[in-house]
Design a protein around this nucleic acid. Structure first.
Lengths: 214, 214
DNA sequence: TATAATCATAAACATTCTGTTCATTATTAT
DNA sequence: ATAATAATGAACAGAATGTTTATGATTATA
């Protein structure tokens, strides 16, 4: 995402130190005031770094924010990647499609403060878009691997976007509403709402076991 | 939404004139530069109104934007309200649940430029949230009227949020992707993806006719 | 450990936008 | 006709952005 990582010469300690400090400062400040209210000066003051230094590394606040989000998302993504081979070795996708959904809701529950703070104001758009892209990408990969080129009733692109949007949207609603249901219950409800349609769109009649509530 | 409309004394012509000019100016400018790039001075210059006057009517740019969005949404809402009694007089909801969806996709297609310009940057969040609230509200009303208090498998709140998020999200994706399918086709695809799960969540086995592609 | 390269820094600066105040002029409803 | 209200422009204070420059500090590396 950033440009200074050309070859062998490991990154200068000062660089990674500064950037880490800036990321941590931004996240802490978002928790305190919300994304919009945070200024570059706030960040550098908290990070104990000269304001000039900030511009040495990032174009603006959004640039830094995107890098930070990507790091959080990578956490989740890594967990999900671990599920791929497992899912493919099964002949029924239903149960395993459940796992990534559970992961998402649990991850959100664990980092609820941060999520909520991020979702407010301008930051919300940036974060949501980034996460939706990522989610749709993973959904697409997942489906392609599972289908192995089989014909589908609806374009995969559409199905993936639908899936990502409904997941992220439901998640956002849940957070904003103060998490009125436990994460695992949300995951079950979401699966019940989303999976029938998605299965149909992928062409197959769903294996009955994959569609039960539990 | 605004405060100066207390009783009989019809609103001063100057007020409605000024506000209309400001709304139109904002929308035109959003089309040209995108929401974020528009400043209050831009708006007042375009509207041919003193900058001071702006603050006489609106707290800030967002305030004006929200009023403008609400107006657009009301257009749609009015069309939808007209569908309610019709839908209720039928014993199968499926086919009529299709109509509002069609309306949404067509409305978006007709105002694609404006929608796209609104969806970019900070404005996107504001617009999306406002529209999602509105959509979820209508979905809730629709379902309550249709169900007449019958017990449902999942909380209506959750179903409505799910529905609103997936509709808005799919819509956004479709616009951003350059509308690769015609609006009516999108509506059919969306219905196919969403309706099975929603029907189930509402407790009933879906009437088969309501679930066919067409 | 010497040193050249690189990074961090503070101070100063120009710029842009915001939101408010105030005295004056124009328009409106009645 | 006139009292009430809206619109105006100028001026202002303040906050934040992003850049430049000269200087000091830290780092990798040999």
């Amino acid at each position: 995402m950033t440009e200074t990582q050309s070859a062998l010469p490991r990154q200068d300690r000062r660089i990674s130190r500064t950037r880490r400090q800036l990321r941590e400062a931004l996240m802490a400040l978002i928790l305190e005031k919300g994304y919009d209210a945070v200024t570059v000066e706030d960040i550098t003051a908290r990070a104990d770094v000269g304001r000039t230094t900030f511009y040495l590394h990032y174009r603006d606040k959004e640039h830094l924010f995107l890098e930070s989000i990507t790091q959080i998302a990578d956490e989740l993504a890594a967990q999900m990647v671990a599920l791929f081979p497992q899912a493919l070795s099964e002949d029924q996708m239903g149960d395993h499609a459940m796992r990534p959904i559970l992961l998402v809701f649990r991850h959100a529950a664990e980092n609820a403060d941060l999520y909520r703070a991020m979702m407010r104001g301008e930051g919300g758009l940036i974060a949501t878009n980034r996460l939706r892209e990522l989610t749709a990408g993973y959904a697409l990969q997942f489906m392609e691997l599972f289908l192995r080129g089989a014909r589908t009733a609806l374009p995969l692109e559409v199905v993936a976007s639908y899936f990502a949007a409904s997941l992220l949207g439901t998640l956002t609603w849940w957070l904003e509403a103060g998490m009125p249901y436990p994460p695992d219950e949300m995951a079950v409800m979401f699966r019940r709402l989303a999976m029938r349609g998605v299965w149909e769109a992928l062409g197959g009649a769903p294996p009955p076991s994959a569609l039960e509530t539990r």
